[in-house]
Design a protein around this nucleic acid. Structure first.
Lengths: 182, 182
DNA sequence: GTCTATACGAAGATAGAC
DNA sequence: GTCTATCTTCGTATAGAC
């Protein structure tokens, strides 16, 4: 059933961003999705690596979709939406969740890692396109800074159990975006 | 012996930044340091959590020391030293190593996580002190942006197997530091 | 075709031999 | 006091019962 499959992927993505790759067991993913263990290997014959790869792609697409939607109102509003998204993830989960893509980037190898690289590149490109079309000359550079600093801030927020890093980073990024666009 | 103890801590820090917390076993740390498994529990009765905590503190102190030394030549040179440090870790290990503190931040709980939070705070304070003493009005904000964006860039570099994110972030941070200080 | 039960290995931690 | 051998638990993955 496609329903169960999607639930496994989304559930895996959620567990990955909370505990990391190696602390997330297939057993728990199956239990969390109320699916038997065998189903997991039925849907994902490639095992844990395949599940992790698809979870990263799912998380990547989810964020990309929100980012694209928010950017329709302009780069500043897009940035704000991006920041609000992460702020909600951080504070809405009592500082116990981070970014699925970062978690996989740090622990995974080959295929899942490649999916993580694609996720970052996609977000960077979406941001750069918007910045460029609004007159920014350093669009690629600024887009990379936004992705890197927000992801880094999410890590700091989690460790320090505070939303302050994200707020500080957001304020400065907004100034930079305003200055770069017209 | 204190020699073996230090070797266990340093070796653990290195393995943590490569594989992450949960993929780093006490067995391998002991083997890597050419110490028997029992020694590890002799030196670190608190088990894996204690070892991880001390590894984070060791990594934190190592970076803090380099940061302080480089900042003596001013904020811009300090930033450059900070960037060079991470660039060397990334490229010198074929994009297979990242930051010990980030790895622990994403996977650890309680004590080790608190050590990670302290590490980030320490680096932020060191940078903020330098920026403030050189006339920056937004010293704390800028220090947070530096730590967050560099740590985030390290994650991106690893995933994308490229030093470009760190270069892009570094160039923009240098402009910001120049503009903020006098 | 779905799911339960199990195989097999490796993890953290400890007890007890030298 | 140092280290080896072992206990227990949990991981991934699979084989075979419904």
């Amino acid at each position: 059933m496609t329903q169960s499959r999607q639930q496994l992927v989304a559930g895996a993505a959620d567990m990955l961003r909370r505990r990391g790759l190696n602390a997330t067991s297939i057993r728990e993913v199956a239990k969390h999705a109320q699916a038997p263990l065998g189903s997991t290997y039925h849907y994902f014959p490639g095992g844990k690596q395949q599940l992790a790869t698809e979870a990263v792609r799912w998380a990547s697409d989810t964020v990309a979709e929100i980012l694209r939607a928010k950017l329709k109102a302009g780069p500043v509003d897009g940035l704000r939406g991006f920041l609000a998204l992460w702020r909600e993830i951080i504070t809405g989960n009592d500082f116990e969740a981070g970014c699925t893509v970062v978690a996989v980037s740090i622990e995974a190898d080959s295929t899942a890692l490649a999916a993580a690289a694609d996720a970052f590149s996609t977000w960077e490109e979406i941001l750069a396109d918007s910045l460029r079309s609004h007159g920014a000359e350093n669009a690629e550079q600024l887009a990379t800074l936004i992705v890197a600093s927000v992801e880094g801030a999410v890590v700091l927020c989690r460790a320090q159990r505070s939303a302050v890093p994200l707020e500080r980073v957001g304020a400065q990024l907004e100034d930079l975006v305003r200055a770069a666009t017209r």
